[in-house]
């Protein structure tokens, strides 16, 4: 099985590669469209600012490639947010895979949300053997609203989508690669899809 982590210049991808390595999986970093298309599993990471990350995707043509992929794709953190319709961060359009908007937390809470929060209403094989109220590590200032494609929720200020799914596309707001054993289980589940 070939697992590719899309390397388009946004974020701490080494951590994701190391997390797979701890699971005994040698995930490749690549921005080569052919390698990405040929992979069995694709990870779409992202840390940083939405509009500049989107700009980097456009420069490499990955904005057109990613929505056409047919194998399981997992967006992580900003990766998940870029798979949505639109983000308030830099007022950028996303890839439109998930039919939902990305909003900023209000000043009623500390921004960014930083730390471990619980996940609920789990509705996908991605959460196989992961219990309701399991803890995952999150760092984010923007969130996807609840929608038809929500497969897990967390609460910060209000309920929001902490995971999304549309066909072969999955997205998680939390960092499974930094979420201890529960996060490793989720990555394993993704590999088993």
């Amino acid at each position: 099985m070939k697992t590719v982590i899309i390397n388009y210049g946004a974020g701490n991808i080494k951590s994701i590669q190391f997390a797979f390595k701890r699971l005994g999986v040698d995930a490749q970093l690549s921005k080569d469209p052919e390698a990405i298309e040929a992979a069995d599993k694709v990870i779409f990471p992202g840390v940083g600012e939405a509009s500049s990350a989107m700009h980097m995707l456009k420069q490499s043509g990955l904005d057109r490639l990613i929505p056409k992929l047919t194998q399981p794709v997992l967006g992580i953190c900003l990766g998940m947010q870029l798979m949505c319709n639109h983000s308030d961060e830099g007022q950028t359009n996303g890839l439109g895979i998930f039919d939902v908007e990305v909003k900023r937390f209000s000043k009623a809470v500390k921004v960014p949300q930083m730390g471990w929060n619980t996940i609920h209403n789990l509705k996908s094989n991605l959460f196989h053997n992961i219990n309701d109220a399991e803890f995952m590590y999150l760092v984010h200032s923007y969130y996807a609203e609840i929608c038809q494609e929500t497969i897990a929720t967390s609460h910060y200020e209000s309920e929001y989508s902490t995971a999304l799914k549309s066909d072969n596309f999955y997205g998680v707001q939390f960092h499974p690669e930094k979420s201890s054993l529960a996060g490793e289980r989720l990555l394993k589940n993704f590999l088993n899809l």
């Binding site: 701490n12 080494k14 951590s15 190391f18 701890r22 590590y137 930094k178 054993l181 996060g183």
Partner: peptide, 30 residues
Amino acid sequence: VAEQVNIPFTVGGGISSIKDVDDLLHCGAD
């Protein structure tokens, strides 16, 4: 640490430039 530890970590001390930060993030610091 990034290779072997599955929780987030911060690195500090003597960091004074964009390059310093870039290097540390590339090594896997969160």
